[in-house]
Each structure stands twice: as structure tokens, then as C-alpha cells.
Design a protein around this nucleic acid. Structure first.
Lengths: 345, 345
DNA sequence: CTGAAAGCGCTAACAA
DNA sequence: TTGTTAGCGCTTTCAG
């Protein structure tokens, strides 16, 4: 905090009033006569007074700060979500503290704990790993918390959340491929995001079943959970050959980064997309539209996810009752998916 | 901050000691006998005590918080820089408040102002628009501040900064193209980033001059500064045709997003990269390596920029003297640049 | 080794 | 309409 700053006492002395008069004047309290109010504000300005938000917080029991836990700051998906969050936070005068969990439960808990000490007014957590064993802790914290796309399978009911309908997304992706005439369709998933991966896979199965299409075990490739942490791109790049070798002509990938990896893998293998293989991603990150061919994907409304989670938090702060939200993703048709054509015809 | 939390007074009462003893015990002050210390810690744990960082800050005149202003949270370049910042901040027990300026001076100032009220210990600003007219204000704020890749042309000496050597970067890019045999080389820049655009252009000119290559005015295309704010990708996409029509065979783009736009533009125009045209970007964002062909670029050490700016701030906080840093970018050869081949040979 | 008391900068009863 | 006084929860002299 450095040096000595001007305080309301300094202003009071200069204005020949008490410090509480200054406090009131600066906050436009109508008890103070308009004239005095203006004078005091003028003096404050002259003295370059900057209110001490820390002292205000201690008194008001409100920090006007929220904490946001993201998996990684450089993750293009959550970057957009955070942008949505920050915009509405800023417009309501809230500041945001940001911390990365790297999908690690320990780090997630540590971040929440720090937020707690700092007495943030609310917390937003993405991709949470918290499960019911932590429910008690969270209850004690007693800070309004909203989870965004939580990875917890057994989510306690007391949790507030904004989520994407992963199962619907998976279904849409696969239905799209089926609509293009594909019948041998694979799923390329990640092992370290239990819930969303599971749901997207369920969507895949659902679509296959509804279309009365056969399902082979080896049409589903999921990266090893306990693997050294490798990037989603590498996952896609490595596993795509496995799927191709068992004859699928369309692949639904867990997300856009995996899909891009798959695309890269195809290039290496000399497989043309979408001529030989159709690929569908998930997320709708900007990157997807810049690659060649542009990626067909299931788009999550990222900004909206962020802004509505933030809005939910604001409601919670005002003690309004809120309802968990499940947002729907939508298909964005681009260049990596095409009508099935039998090569050997 | 909600409800009533456990305070050291509560613990003191339960332990039958004074609150100052508790305060000392919890911070492992050796004045307190080891036995009492342990007891008190035990009680604190049982009572789920969480220290109030706000009260501590008020007393200590230190918030253990830094403020970071970025142009946009979803900007892939600054996202990586912030990641570098956050990592070292976290390791030193500092939390980071994040705010976006959208390259707007007003918003930048507003963000800094809020950080000031919140009494952050230090501030990091990327792409700053602040000029010497604001020097006084900044001096008054008297909070250690480090600028990252500032856009200010007349940077006051009192500013601390970490910058990339844009001119060197530009020179490297163009020398690379010259080395490939290109002689008609264009620059595709942006009008709203005065300093870095200027410097990169200078690097371009320098390389051309040193190679005794001719320079045409219409080989340089720069987006209209006062234009409605359009994305860098659109800038590249729109302006590339202009450059191509005047016969350049290689283009150095202001940054990777512009380069990607240029690439997209080429696709529309039926121009093959790198066969008909070589393109070099700037930044080295991950995205560049996922597109086809992968982007040749001038890479900035993003994580290092972030971590060294943060390190500089830490030194400033410890009242050490610091020296401004200018980091060197480096060429990353990938697929968008190739040896010049005369089509009409 | 421990406690009493002051104070960080502010807000808000309660008085005047 | 304004001033006095008491805290918010903590750290830190200064006594004991």
C-alpha cells in the first residue's frame, strides 16, 4: 500500500469539519448541506484523495470483489467465459480476482481458500473437481458460489451451477454425421474430464442407438486418465489413427482442441478431411474457424455462460433465489464434415 | 463478506488468553511458548478460523494483491503473458486482480484507478496508452507499476517496462523473406497500435534498405486507425489483396492474427501460400502452429514477458533497483514461407 | 512469555 | 445539519 495517503481526516482538518462529515459528504449523503458537500468534494479533489477500499470493506463487510477459478488462463474456451464474467462484473462495480487450478483439485481448493481469506463476495469456479466430500467445507465458507461446467458427477444439490447440456451436444454432433450418411462413427474423448466426457459419450451413444446404428467398442478412443498430462491437441493427434484404422468415417471429438489434433494427425497420415473422414468438434472457439478446412463444431455460448453465471452470482448476493441453468449448445456446420462417400464404390 | 465469522477474539475467549496472544501464536511468533502456540492453532483449526485478509491489509498496509490490465482477456497473446504473471504471483503469495482495457485509454485509466482505491501493491499494464500527460497522475499513485509492451511513443523515463524489440522482430521477419529470395516484400500493419506498428515497420524498412532492395509506398498497407474497431483477422483478410495486386511475393504481417486473416484472404483469392506468396506473422501464439500451412512467425517469449515483468514488480516492491528489459523475439520457420519462385519463368 | 491499549481508514449509531 | 464515539479484525508497541 506504500507511503502515507490522504485520508478523510486530512480532508476534515483542512475543511474545518469532522471526519464523519467528510465521509458523508463524499458519499453524497443528503444530511450534509449541498454547499458543504460541494466544498468538501472540491477539497478532496484538490488533495488527490483516493478512498481506501480496504478500510471500507472492513467496515461494510463487503469487498466488491469476486474470485474466479479457471483451469488455465491461456485456455481459449475459458478465456471467453471469463470475458463474459468480467464484463458484467465491471458493469456492477465488482473487481475480479483470477486464479488457475490446472484441473487439479488441490489447486482448486487452495484458490478457493485464498478467496475466502480475502473475503470475496462471491466465487465462480469452472470445471470444478469438488465432490460431496467437500460439501461441508463449502457450506462453512458460506460464500455464494456458482459452478460453471462442473466436472463433479455427484453434484450436491446445494451447489449453484451453470452448465452446458453435454449430452445434447454429443447427440447433435453425431446426428449431424448420421445425417450426412455416416454409419461408422467414432468418439475421441479425454480421460481426465470425467463428467463432460461421459455426457458427451452418452450423447454419442444415444444418437447411434436412436438411428439403429451398430456400435463397436473400438470406435471409442479415450485418452488415458493417468497419463502424464498431455495437451488435448496431442490426444487428438495420437488417437485419431486408431479410430481410422478400425474403419470409422466420421469422428466426434471431445472438444475443438482434440479435433484440431485429429486434423493434424490426419494430415500426417495422408487422410483428407472431409473427403475421407468427417470431424466434428465441441466448444466453438475462435480458432476453429481459422483452420483449413474450418472446423464443424458444437458451439457453446461462451460469453453467455460467463455472463449468466455472473448474473446468477449477483442474484445470490442480493439474496434472490436462483435456479440452476442448463444451456443448450448448437451445431455450427463448417468444412470438416461432409456427405459420406464410399471410397471403394 | 456475509455473516459473522470466527475472529481471533473468539479463539482468545475459548483459549482463555488475550487476542494478541492468539494473533502472535497463529503467526508462529516465538515470543509465545511452543505449547500455547500449538494449543491455540489447534483451537483455531477446530473452530474453522479463516484469517481476515482485509483486516490484515488495513493494518499491514499491504494487500498482497497486484492489478493487471490487459487489452482483452480473450486475446491469446496476453492470455499467455498473464499466465506467466499469475504463476510467479501465486508462488509469492500474491493474488491478481484482472481488468480489460480494450485498448481504450479511458478504460485503462479507470482500471488503474480502481486498483489504486483497492490499494494493490503493484500494477502491470499491457499495451498502455498512457503518455506523459499522465505522468503526474501516475507519480501520485505511487504504486510500483511495470508496463508491458507499452504503446506510448514518448515514454517518460520514470516508467518501468518490459518490452519486446519490435524493430528487431520486423527486421528478422523481412530478412527471412529476403533470404528466401524475395525482393518485393510488403508490410501489412494495424493503425491502432502506434508504437509497435511503427517499430515493426521500421524493422521492415531497415532490412529492405540493408539489402539494397527497392521500397514502394504501396507495398505497405496499414488499417485505418479511425475505423470502426475491426478484428485483426479481418484487417489481414481485407488488406492482403491490395498488397498482392501490386506484386509483392512476401508479406510481413503485424501479428499472427493479421497473418491468419491474410491467409484466409489468400484462400478466397485462390492464392496458394507459400507457393505464390510467403507470409510471416508476429507473436507466436499457439494457434499459428495449428493452421495449414503452419505459420512462420516472429515469436515473442510470452511466458517470459509475463514472468519477468512480474519479477520486476517484485523487485520494486522490495525497493530494489530495477532495469527496464528489452527482450528479443526470434524467428520460427514453419510452412507459410518458402523460397521465391518466379511464376512466369 | 503474555496482556492492555492504540490505531490502520472508514461507516454509522447516537447525541447535540 | 454536524460532531462524538464506537467499532470492523487485525498487528504491534509498551508494560508487566
Amino acid at each position: 500500500m506504500s507511503k502515507r495517503r490522504i485520508s478523510i481526516e486530512d480532508i476534515a482538518r483542512r475543511a474545518g469539519v469532522s471526519h464523519s462529515t467528510v465521509s458523508r459528504a463524499l458519499r453524497d449523503n443528503t444530511l450534509i448541506s449541498p454547499k458543504v458537500r460541494e466544498e468538501i468534494k472540491q477539497i478532496a479533489k484538490e488533495m488527490n484523495y483516493v478512498p481506501n477500499a480496504i478500510a471500507q470493506s472492513l467496515q461494510n463487510k463487503r469487498t466488491n470483489t469476486i474470485g474466479v477459478v479457471v483451469t488455465s488462463i491461456a485456455d481459449p474456451f475459458y478465456a471467453e467465459v471469463v470475458q463474459g464474467i468480467e464484463e458484467v462484473a465491471k458493469s456492477t462495480g465488482l473487481s475480479v480476482l483470477l486464479s488457475a487450478s490446472h484441473r487439479d483439485l488441490e489447486q482448486e481448493i487452495a484458490a478457493i481458500d485464498i478467496f475466502h481469506r480475502r473475503r470475496v463476495d462471491g466465487i465462480l469456479v469452472t470445471d470444478s473437481r469438488l465432490n460431496k466430500h467437500h460439501t461441508k467445507q463449502l457450506e462453512q465458507i458460506a460464500v455464494p458460489t456458482v459452478f460453471i461446467n462442473s466436472q463433479t458427477e455427484d453434484q450436491p444439490e446445494i451447489f449453484h451451477s451453470v452448465e452446458i447440456d453435454d449430452r445434447l451436444g454429443g447427440k447433435l454432433a453425431v446426428e449431424h454425421l448420421i445425417g450426412l450418411g455416416h454409419t461408422s462413427i467414432g468418439y475421441l474423448g479425454v480421460g481426465d474430464r470425467s463428467r463432460s466426457n461421459q455426457q458427451r459419450l452418452e450423447g454419442y451413444r444415444l444418437a447411434m442407438t436412436e438411428a439403429s446404428l451398430p456400435q463397436m467398442n473400438d470406435w471409442v478412443a479415450i485418452s488415458d486418465e493417468d497419463n502424464v498430462r498431455i495437451s488435448d491437441v496431442s490426444t487428438g493427434q495420437k488417437l485419431v489413427s486408431k479410430l481410422v484404422s478400425v474403419g470409422v468415417t466420421g469422428i466426434f471429438c471431445y472438444n475443438d482442441m482434440v479435433a484440431i489434433g485429429a486434423l493434424l494427425g490426419c494430415q500426417e497420415l495422408g487422410i483428407s478431411v472431409p473427403e475421407d473422414l468427417s470431424i466434428v468438434g465441441f466448444d466453438g472457439i475462435a480458432l476453429g474457424s481459422y483452420i483449413t478446412p474450418p472446423l464443424t463444431t458444437i458451439c457453446q455460448p461462451m460469453l453467455e455462460i460467463g455472463s449468466s453465471a455472473m448474473q446468477m452470482l449477483l442474484d445470490l448476493l442480493e439474496e434472490k433465489s436462483v435456479e440452476n441453468r442448463v444451456l443448450s449448445p448448437s451445431l455450427v456446420k463448417r468444412g470438416t464434415s461432409a456427405v459420406f462417400r464410399n471410397k471403394y464404390k
